[in-house]
């Protein structure tokens, strides 16, 4: 099984993408499965370590949290851009955060989440000390942001990947 389908998540994603782009008919399903299998095997020599996901419940919980946070920060950032009345009070700034995550997958997903959310942007990460630099649009309390990143997102990601 693992020799035939070395990257099951990639193959499954490719099948879904193929069906979305064409039409959900049995013919396209077979063609998409063939392409997904070939692509999965083509990736195998490039990246020997297949992704291993654990705790599907945690993935769903993380997706829910991120969706809610993106909606909330969309509202907050667009309000700040519109009013700009708080421009004297609004202080954007940089926050250093000590991360526990070490695996590249965990860091990549964390960076995607942080940057995709309006109001926070991942700037850089030092792999030796594990410190990341975050830019926050409306910085009120640095400790609060350190707590948010470490406990709200990183804890769940550690549960899923590491």
């Amino acid at each position: 099984m693992s020799r035939l389908v070395p990257h099951p998540w990639l193959s499954l994603g490719l099948i879904c993408l193929w069906l979305l782009l064409t039409a959900p008919t049995p013919g396209y399903l077979i063609l998409g499965m063939a392409i997904a299998l070939i692509a999965g095997r083509a990736l195998a020599p490039l990246e020997p370590q297949a992704l291993r996901l654990r705790h599907p419940g945690a993935i769903l919980k993380l997706a829910g949290i991120v969706t809610v946070d993106i909606v909330r920060s969309n509202a907050a950032v667009s309000w700040l851009i519109l009013t700009n009345g708080r421009s004297d009070h609004r202080r954007s700034g940089f926050v250093h955060i000590q991360l526990r995550a070490r695996k590249p997958e965990t860091l990549a997903i964390l960076a995607l989440i942080v940057t995709a959310t309006p109001g926070t942007a991942w700037l850089e990460h030092d792999p030796e000390s594990g410190v990341m630099l975050l830019h926050v649009f409306d910085l009120i309390d640095e400790a609060e942001w350190q707590d948010t990143i470490r406990n709200r997102y990183e804890a769940l990601l550690l549960e899923i990947f590491e």
């Binding site: 969309n74 950032v77 667009s78 851009i81 519109l82 954007s92 940089f94 109001g119 942007a121 649009f137």
Partner: peptide
Amino acid sequence: TLSMLGAFGLMRLKSFYDRLHAPTLATSW
């Protein structure tokens, strides 16, 4: 409206690091 606000913020905000947040409005919701 959100996309337009994102571009408006890109035009209006003062520093580059602030402007970095504006396009995410257009690309998220």
